[in-house]
């Protein structure tokens, strides 16, 4: 199989299939799911055989499989929005720092250094304790904290582009900062940023799952994978595997994205060589 004129490796194909299945699950959840997100259809933690369902029932007697599908929707959408926001912030400031240089670069880089001095989780917990947990706060906080890493990369990439002739030419034509960033730097910085997008998505996705698991992320009644692990954690003490199902879903999607990212990076490395 080929994608963008490049041969897909076996690993990349597996990764791509995982991603597509997850996206389909998220988009088609209301159509495919046999039960509703919050429908109670039987006893607590009924086994698949007794309840006639794929993965059995959860801690409130809701269908695990249906909630997994709806959970894909919530978790993936929020992680995707967060990553997009983090990239917008990180790239705009990163490119601006590289193109403008001088005091702007100095100021932005020091701010980023300061933000990165504290572990992300600690910082996020601090913000959440002050602002309370809601989806906008969650997205905003993680996007800002994560954009520091995007800033570092996009600045470094843009630094290599800025001294090139065509950027110089655009500047001499009298183009403004925004134009140079958008028309000259962005298109040429795109390939390394795409791979980074996958990695950042994995990070925000795992991060949101961890926060939800701690009870500080996405709040009920929305089904989300991290929260489902938390809800069903009690089942483990009598040997149930209920919390493992959403946890495995998280792990599988992350592996899938990582496999594709590795493939993109290897193409990139091969082209450079």
């Amino acid at each position: 199989m080929r994608l963008f004129g490049q041969r897909l490796s076996v690993a990349a194909t597996i990764g791509l299939v995982i991603i597509v299945v997850n996206i389909l699950a998220a988009v088609l959840a209301p159509v495919v799911a046999p039960y509703g997100e919050a429908d109670i259809i039987g006893d607590v933690w009924d086994a698949p055989e007794t309840s006639q369902t794929v993965f059995g029932l959860d801690n409130l007697g809701r269908d695990m499989f249906s909630r997994l599908l709806y959970g894909a929707r919530t978790t993936i959408t929020i992680a995707l929005i967060t990553t997009l926001l983090s990239f917008t912030i990180g790239c705009v400031f990163g490119f601006a720092a590289a193109v403008a240089g001088g005091w702007l670069d100095m100021l932005l880089s020091r701010i980023v250094d300061a933000l990165m001095a504290i572990p992300t989780l600690i910082f996020a917990l601090l913000v959440l304790s002050v602002l309370g947990t809601s989806i906008p706060v969650l997205i905003g906080t993680i996007a800002v904290l994560d954009s520091t890493r995007v800033f570092r990369l996009s600045r470094a990439v843009a630094m290599n582009i800025v001294p090139l002739e065509y950027v110089e030419a655009a500047r001499l034509r009298g183009e403004g900062l925004a134009w140079v960033m958008r028309r000259e730097v962005l298109p040429n910085a795109l390939p390394p940023l795409i791979a980074e997008f996958g990695l950042r998505f994995c990070f925000t996705f795992l991060f949101i799952a961890a926060l939800s698991f701690l009870g500080l992320g996405i709040q009920p009644p929305f089904a989300d994978w991290g929260g489902m692990v938390r809800d069903n954690a009690q089942a483990i003490s009598f040997g149930g595997i209920a919390p493992l199902i959403p946890a495995a879903a998280i792990a599988i999607l992350t592996i899938g994205v990582n496999l594709v990212v590795d493939w993109i990076l290897s193409i990139h490395a091969a082209r450079r060589a």
Binding site: C202, L206, A209, A210, F213, G226, V229, A233, I236, S237, G239, I241, P243, L244, A247, A248, I250, A251, T254, I255, N258, L259, D262
Partner: peptide
């Protein structure tokens, strides 16, 4: 390495609990 960076901490923890604490009974789960 790929597996370890992809698995959330709680996934590893629960797998260990199921295998080592519940099935083998070597260590307590709490």
């Amino acid at each position: 390495t790929l597996v370890a960076i992809s698995f959330p901490e709680f996934f590893i923890a629960y797998v260990l609990i199921i295998i080592v604490a519940v099935n083998l009974g070597w260590f307590p789960s709490l």
